[in-house]
Amino acid sequence: KLLSSIEQACDICRLKKLKCSKEKPKCAKCLKNNWECRYSPKTKRSPLTRAHLTEVESRLERLE
């Protein structure tokens, strides 16, 4: 599967780190437990900047 097509777990399953069936409108866990089942939009991760990478590398060197 391509990364862009990976389905996201519902908010509660993601928060509780449960295996989500990803069914809509309610996944199996939410249906069974009568929880409100919501699927928040995916958040875009910002790409690493060179400055951040350099900072992490220098912190790693100090720890070694």
Rank of each mutant, 00 (worst) to 15 (best):
K1I: 05
K1F: 13
L2Q: 15
L2A: 12
L2G: 15
L3R: 11
L3H: 12
L3T: 13
L3I: 12
L3D: 15
L3S: 10
S4K: 07
S4I: 13
S5N: 10
S5Q: 11
S5T: 10
I6S: 12
I6N: 10
I6D: 07
I6K: 09
I6R: 05
E7P: 10
E7V: 10
E7R: 07
Q8W: 11
Q8P: 08
A9N: 01
A9K: 04
C10R: 09
C10S: 01
C10V: 01
C10M: 08
I12N: 09
I12V: 13
I12A: 11
C13D: 01
C13S: 03
R14F: 03
R14L: 05
R14T: 07
L15G: 12
L15S: 12
L15K: 10
L15Q: 11
K16R: 04
K16T: 00
K17A: 05
K17L: 04
K17E: 01
K17I: 06
K17Y: 04
K17S: 04
L18E: 00
L18T: 09
K19Q: 05
K19H: 07
C20V: 01
C20R: 03
S21L: 04
S21I: 03
S21G: 05
S21Y: 00
K22A: 01
K22R: 10
K22E: 05
K22S: 04
E23D: 13
E23Q: 15
E23G: 10
K24N: 15
K24F: 15
K24Q: 14
K24T: 15
P25M: 04
P25S: 10
P25V: 04
P25A: 04
K26N: 15
K26L: 15
K26G: 14
C27F: 07
C27I: 02
C27W: 01
A28C: 10
A28T: 13
A28K: 14
K29D: 07
K29I: 08
K29H: 04
K29Y: 05
C30I: 07
C30K: 03
C30L: 00
C30W: 08
L31D: 14
L31I: 12
L31W: 14
K32R: 15
N33V: 04
N33R: 12
N33G: 12
N33Y: 10
N34I: 09
N34W: 03
N34T: 14
W35N: 11
W35E: 08
W35G: 12
W35T: 11
E36G: 11
E36K: 10
C37S: 05
C37R: 01
C37A: 08
C37H: 03
R38I: 14
R38W: 11
R38G: 14
R38D: 08
Y39I: 03
S40M: 03
S40Y: 08
P41F: 02
P41G: 06
K42V: 05
K42C: 07
K42G: 09
K42T: 08
K42P: 15
T43L: 13
T43E: 15
T43V: 13
K44I: 15
K44S: 05
K44N: 10
K44W: 06
R45D: 00
R45P: 02
R45N: 01
R45F: 01
R45W: 02
S46F: 03
S46T: 12
S46C: 03
P47R: 08
P47S: 04
P47I: 02
L48D: 00
L48R: 04
L48G: 07
L48S: 04
T49S: 02
T49C: 07
T49D: 03
T49Y: 08
R50E: 05
R50M: 07
A51L: 09
A51C: 09
A51V: 14
A51I: 10
H52R: 08
H52W: 10
H52Y: 13
H52N: 06
H52S: 06
H52L: 03
L53I: 05
L53S: 01
L53R: 10
L53T: 00
T54Y: 09
E55T: 12
E55R: 11
E55C: 13
E55N: 11
E55F: 13
V56P: 02
V56L: 10
V56Y: 08
V56G: 00
E57I: 02
E57D: 09
E57N: 00
E57P: 07
S58Q: 15
S58C: 15
S58Y: 13
R59G: 05
R59Y: 02
R59Q: 11
L60H: 05
L60N: 04
L60E: 00
E61Y: 13
R62T: 11
R62C: 09
L63H: 03
E64I: 09
